[in-house]
Design a binder for these strands. Structure first.
Length: 795
DNA sequence: TCATACCGGGG
DNA sequence: GTGTACGGTATGA
């Protein structure tokens, strides 16, 4: 009895592993290209030798249908799987799912044309494409995915990331529009790490055409598995495609065929040529085209710590930008090239080197996903985790189990309910503790077995269970591996990928039925309801232990503890409350801070015990904010949290003084804007409405700009404006020394109304007025600064 | 004035 | 034949 049930569990465990990883052990797949005719090309890099092999294999194209009706017209040529002579085979899957007929043929065209013919007859109108049948009646995957689902193969088995042949290239162009601008330089980084810079010999069509031919030749010679760049699909490939077409160059970047790039539909890509509302991405069969911008977005979605998503900002943030890295504003690159080409060569070379490193550091999650889900690597790199990763895993699991899949189903109108957010107090508090539950929603799903109602196989919960367990193992393995080792890197990437998928399981259910197959708003609401109850319980129990609650959001809470408490008291209290929560829901002591300025929900400043100031939320950090204001905020909050109120006023007065005496460089008062109107368009409306950014351009003598240009502008005296270079670009400034003709009164008002006001919650109104009174206007009746204390306002 | 549409990135 | 957010500015009724 006992051994039998253990065996049963083993079997269940084994099939659940297959849901996660597939089942075919074929190692080293680096690319798959399949056609509807039943032929698939598989490129494999042998893990032992690194050698590339190409295999051409047969597979049986398949579809899932909700009925066989539309195929009955073929008569005897339709037969049960395994029967002789059947041109089209079918199999009836188990369970209540609507899509229960798995049909297949040697050639997918036989299948689809028979189906379209039958459907046209049944519906009395011409059905020209499978998608016209609606995805509630047919499930049709791309040929590659049909192949991967049917075989249980996945990419990259037993192949470490650094065995992939990865190449990077980056275009330097005279502008953003491929209609009117040219490519004049292409930097290339080979898989070996060697870099080279290709250049057009002059600005003729023939020179540009030759440059593109050189790139194609380098790609063919290096024969990479993967081509990477930042915004590759948004800029470089579309630009290259348009230029190549105009110049009559064939962009043979793939491993098969002699034609140019192919296309696929994609959410974020470039506007399609035929239909501007459609977005497409380019494909080069045999290679995977990876955009590091996708990896950056995915990374920042989880961490929310990147200052921006541009290559330079990311490289600096990750600490991979070299000290002497060349920076040139985008709209100056071609102009700088004409007088100092060497500088642009260095710039372009750094671009590809940084891209290679960003891809290595942030691309691991997509690489790990490609070892699990039955999709091409490049699809998994830009896929959303719900429809792009979980859905394919679930489809493969159901087919592997021989179970029918439910069709997409719209919700019943029940609205989706979200998380809780409480602001208990604002102002200044001391001795702060942050406690939170890691992965609250997946934990609740697991603890209370909340899964989609129609997932009769229980695959989503099983996959989440497996991922959580496997992720713990990956985290432990990463920790055990040597720092910087391939093993650590691989395990960390695996852990990141698994976290991504686990955290999407809830979003998968909450998404509408048009998006995900197993969407279930009731289950999703049950998760958030349990989440709110858990947060409320945490808050109640913490308050009952004598803490002051400050802010609670979804899965975490900030609170202040009494003066007499030690860190041990803090941790013990969190542990006590943690013990009261449901199993699998782990409340953790996340951090402790000396003080906090709570401004608004999700907007606060924290002072660490080490004296470091952390600013969170848009009120405290914004890329558009004027640098002098950010500096003021930081200094003033430092004084505030140190309990030095006269110091806060000193910082305010010193900033006002520096503005009025023009000691601040113009850069300090400038803000970062993106120009969205062309010069012509602005001139149309200039008479009715003047806009600072364009006035600044005109006043600086820059009358020609492109939509999309980004500049720093400031307001000058008399309502005019000016453009200023940031310090790192100052070397290229065409203008002379800083004139500092900014509107000091305007920026003084901005300091008071926009920046100082972020400290308002820290004081009573009267005290706030005293601290930020104009110089010389401190009234006799105002409180003395020495007697003012910051406050905490309970809500 | 308020609602909605669009953007993030690339030279 | 696709589909992760959200907080901003820009635009239009």
């Amino acid at each position: 009895m006992h051994s039998e049930s253990a065996e049963h569990r083993d079997k269940a465990g084994q099939s659940q592993d297959e849901w996660l990883w597939g089942w075919d052990p074929t190692p080293g797949i680096v690319s798959v290209w399949a056609e509807n005719d039943g032929w698939a090309l598989v490129w494999r890099r042998l893990p032992e030798t690194g050698q590339l092999v190409r295999e051409r294999v047969r597979f049986r194209p398949w579809l899932l249908l909700d009925r066989l009706d539309d195929l009955l017209h073929v008569g005897d040529r339709l037969g049960l799987a395994g029967s002789a002579d059947a041109l089209i085979e079918y199999r009836v899957l188990d369970g209540p799912g609507e899509l229960r007929f798995l049909v297949s043929a040697e050639d997918g065209r036989t299948l689809s044309s028979a189906l379209l013919h039958g459907a046209s007859q049944r519906l009395g109108k011409r059905i020209g494409h499978l998608r016209d049948l609606g995805h509630d009646t047919v499930l049709s995957l791309s040929p590659e995915e049909q192949y991967l689902v049917a075989t249980g193969r996945t990419y990259f088995r037993d192949l470490p990331f650094d065995k992939l042949r990865r190449m990077q290239f980056d275009l330097e162009t005279t502008g953003l529009s491929p209609e009117s601008c040219r490519i004049f330089m292409i930097s290339v980084r080979a898989p070996s790490g060697a870099t080279q810079v290709l250049e057009a010999r002059d600005d003729s069509d023939e020179a540009e055409a030759e440059l593109i031919r050189q790139l194609v030749a380098v790609v063919q010679a290096e024969d990479p598995d993967v081509i990477e760049n930042h915004n590759l699909h948004g800029f470089d490939l579309p630009f290259l495609d348009t230029r190549a077409e105009r110049l009559g160059v064939v962009l043979a970047l793939g491993r098969i065929g002699s034609g140019g790039l192919r296309q696929r539909a994609a959410r974020r890509g470039t506007a399609s040529e035929g239909d501007a509302r459609r977005r497409v991405r380019f494909i080069a069969p045999g290679r995977e085209l990876i955009d590091t911008l996708d990896a950056v977005l995915r990374y920042d979605f989880a961490t929310r710590e990147l200052p921006g998503h541009g290559l330079k900002a990311v490289a600096r943030h990750l600490g991979i930008a070299k000290e002497d890295r060349e920076y040139i504003p985008g709209d100056r690159i071609h102009e700088v090239y004409q007088r100092d080409p060497e500088r642009v060569r260095r710039y372009a070379t750094s671009d590809v080197e940084e891209v290679a490193e960003v891809a290595r550091m942030l691309g691991g999650a997509a690489f790990a996903l490609a070892r699990m889900a039955p999709r091409r690597y490049e699809r998994l790199a830009d896929a959303g985790a719900a429809t792009g990763v979980l859905d394919p895993l679930l489809v493969r699991a159901y087919l592997r189990a021989g179970m029918a899949l439910p069709a997409h189903q719209a919700g019943d109108g029940t609205p989706h309910q979200g998380a809780a957010l409480h602001l208990f107090a604002s102002g200044v508090a001391r001795r702060i503790v942050k406690a939170d539950v890691a992965s609250l929603y997946p934990s609740l799903m697991r603890a209370f077995r909340i899964g989609p109602k129609r997932d009769h196989l229980g695959a989503l919960l099983a996959i989440v269970d497996r991922l959580v367990e496997r992720r713990l193992a990956a985290k432990a393995a990463a920790k055990a591996a040597a720092a910087g080792s391939v093993e650590r890197y691989t395990q960390e990437a695996l852990s990141a990928a698994m976290k991504l998928v686990v955290n999407t399981a809830y979003g998968y259910m909450a998404a509408g039925g048009t998006l995900t197959r197993f969407a279930d708003v009731h289950a999703a609401n049950e998760v958030t309801r349990r989440g709110r109850a858990t947060l409320d319980l945490m808050c109640r129990e913490l308050a009952a232990r004598g803490v002051t609650l400050l802010e609670a959001d979804t899965d975490g809470v900030y609170f202040a503890v009494p003066e007499s408490w030690t860190e041990a008291d803090e941790r013990r209290t969190v542990d006590e409350v943690a013990a009261l929560l449901p199993p699998l829901v782990h409340l953790e002591f996340e951090g402790r801070y000396a003080a906090m300025l709570s401004h608004e929900p999700k907007n606060y400043a924290l002072l660490t015990y080490g004296g470091k100031l952390l600013l969170k939320g848009v009120a405290f950090r914004s890329s558009r904010a004027e640098p002098y204001g950010e500096t003021f905020l930081r200094r003033a909050i430092e004084r505030l949290l140190a309990g030095d109120i006269p110091g806060v006023r000193d910082v305010y007065l010193a900033t006002l003084d520096a503005l009025r005496r023009r000691e601040l460089p113009t850069y300090e008062v400038s803000s970062f804007v993106r120009l969205t109107k062309s010069p012509a368009k602005y001139l149309e409306t200039r008479d009715s409405r003047r806009e600072l950014a364009y006035e600044a351009m005109l006043a600086s003598g820059r009358t020609a700009w492109s939509v999309g240009d980004k500049v720093r502008v400031y307001r000058a005296k008399g309502g005019s404006g000016g453009v200023v270079e940031s310090p790192e670009h100052a070397a290229y400034a065409a203008d002379g020394p800083d004139r500092r003709d900014y509107d000091a009164d305007h920026y003084s008002r901005l300091l008071r109304d926009t920046f100082a006001s972020r400290l308002a919650r820290a004081f009573t109104p009267a005290d706030y007025a005293a601290v930020f009174a104009d110089p010389g206007q401190l009234s006799l009746f105002a409180p003395s600064l020495d007697t003012i204390h910051s406050v905490l306002n309970r809500q």
